[in-house]
Design a binder for these strands. Structure first.
Length: 405
DNA sequence: AAGTCTACCAACCGCCCTCAT
DNA sequence: AATGAGGGCGGTTGGTAGACT
């Protein structure tokens, strides 16, 4: 026995909304709020089902929706989060202020997915597609490049997950404090959610700082060992190919500190010092901060990633076998140790992303330890090679586009 | 100019989850 | 515990506009 339909379908209009219908819906909601969606159409004088009204409002009519072209930063965020969360569009949307899950989903399907595919990356797994039908040295080189990309992705994935856990750990303490604080002052209005989020006051922090910081660290700092890289474990790819993918448009981003200046590899400029975002930005929010804007609890702008991973490995040894989340917690501990404690002003990350991470999308935990040692073993020459390889891949991709186009 | 193809995206559909009863 | 309402979510469809032949 199936569910009864949400409304009588007979006589109800379907298809595109007219401006008059939009106006009716807006006027009603602005005056009375949506209340029960099922009851709304008749009250508002609309020949639509409640579900249709809800979709129209949440995906199109809400005043706090940002429309138009996605920025490079947004693209990067989508790809990163998709790699972590898969097709959990609502969770991804929660990290992109003023974008709806539907819009992100469409953008993924029509733009990003194709771009990934064109780059030889499986958009589902975020792994490089392996071509077993052909051989040759160029393919060997490509495999190595892909492996390097994977290793970078492992690092990023680990960082993202560790960050999320780190912030959550901090928030457990903060929520309690905040509740205590809130109970001592008048209640603020509940936040409106755009797919459960609201537009946020953008902090001045450069987006994706965490990832870029990690990149800069791995790039700029020679490491101690020359152990061979193990390339058989691929992981998810994040912003490094987001930049590659964006190459067919404009690599210059107002927020990116990374550039591909032709074929010349230039040192990356120093990143700004992370600034703390106040726990309560503005008055009425749930302290949700875009995923990519959660600052690392760094106390200065020195490069401490190597130290982090040293600490990580030490902690890992001490906690091995305790829990499936040991890797993450070890990383958290490493952060904690290297940073000299938590920054008390770290904002929380939205719960759905954290939940998604916890729900099993941290499936690469087992790679964390390996990726840590891998990253520690990447030497400067290999990093140079890595970036040159990316340039090569990007150029190759462009050439292919020209030929195919 | 007309027909066809392609990309885009708003909207729909059906399943799932939560909550109240 | 079972049931149903309400709403959220992700996959898919279909209309439309622009590009191409």
């Amino acid at each position: 026995m199936g569910r009864s339909p949400c409304c009588e379908k007979v006589g109800l209009k379907k298809g595109p909304w007219t401006p008059e219908e939009d106006q009716k819906l807006i006027a009603y909601i602005e005056e009375f709020g949506h209340g029960s969606w099922r009851a709304l159409p008749s009250k508002a004088g609309l020949q639509r089902c409640g579900k249709s009204c809800r979709l129209r409002w949440t995906n199109y009519l809400r005043p706090d929706i940002k429309r138009g072209k996605f920025s490079l930063q947004e693209e990067q965020t989508i790809i990163q989060l998709h790699a972590l969360l898969g097709n959990r569009w609502s969770a991804i949307a929660a990290q992109l202020p003023r974008r709806t899950d539907n819009e992100i989903k469409n953008y993924w399907n029509t733009h990003l997915k194709k771009r990934l595919t064109r780059m030889g990356i499986d958009p589902t797994t975020h792994k490089p597609k392996t071509d077993t039908t052909s051989g040759g040295s160029s393919n060997c080189q490509y495999s190595k490049d892909s492996a390097n990309l994977s290793h970078m992705a492992q690092w990023e994935s680990a960082r993202l997950e560790a960050e999320a856990r780190l912030v959550r750990e901090t928030n457990k303490m903060k929520v309690q404090r905040q509740l205590e604080f809130e109970s001592s002052k008048p209640q603020t209005p509940a936040r409106l959610f755009l797919n459960k989020i609201t537009p946020l006051v953008q902090p001045s922090l450069p987006p994706c700082l965490d990832i870029l910081k990690a990149w800069q660290s791995s790039w700029s700092k020679p490491t101690q060992s020359n152990e061979t890289l193990n390339s058989n474990n691929s992981s998810r790819m994040h912003s490094m190919y987001a930049m590659m993918l964006s190459n067919d448009e404009n690599l210059e981003s107002p927020t990116s500190t990374l550039n591909f200046p032709g074929t010349t590899l230039l040192p990356l400029p120093p990143l700004p010092v992370p600034v703390s975002i106040p726990m309560t930005n503005n008055n009425n929010n749930n302290n949700i901060v875009p995923f990519n804007q959660v600052p690392l609890p760094l106390t200065d702008n020195t490069n401490n990633d190597d130290e982090i991973w040293k600490q990580f490995n030490l902690t890992k040894q001490n906690t091995e076998g305790d829990h499936e989340d040991d890797d993450i917690m070890a990383a958290v501990e490493a952060f904690r140790s290297s940073c000299g404690g938590f920054d008390n002003n770290i904002p929380p990350i939205s719960s759905n992303v954290l939940q998604a991470l916890e729900d099993g999308n941290g499936g690469d935990h087992e790679n964390l330890n390996e990726s840590s040692s891998l990253m520690c073993n990447v030497n400067l020459e290999e990093n140079k090679h890595y970036w040159n390889s990316i340039l090569g891949l990007v150029n190759e991709s462009d050439d292919m586009n020209i030929v195919l186009g």
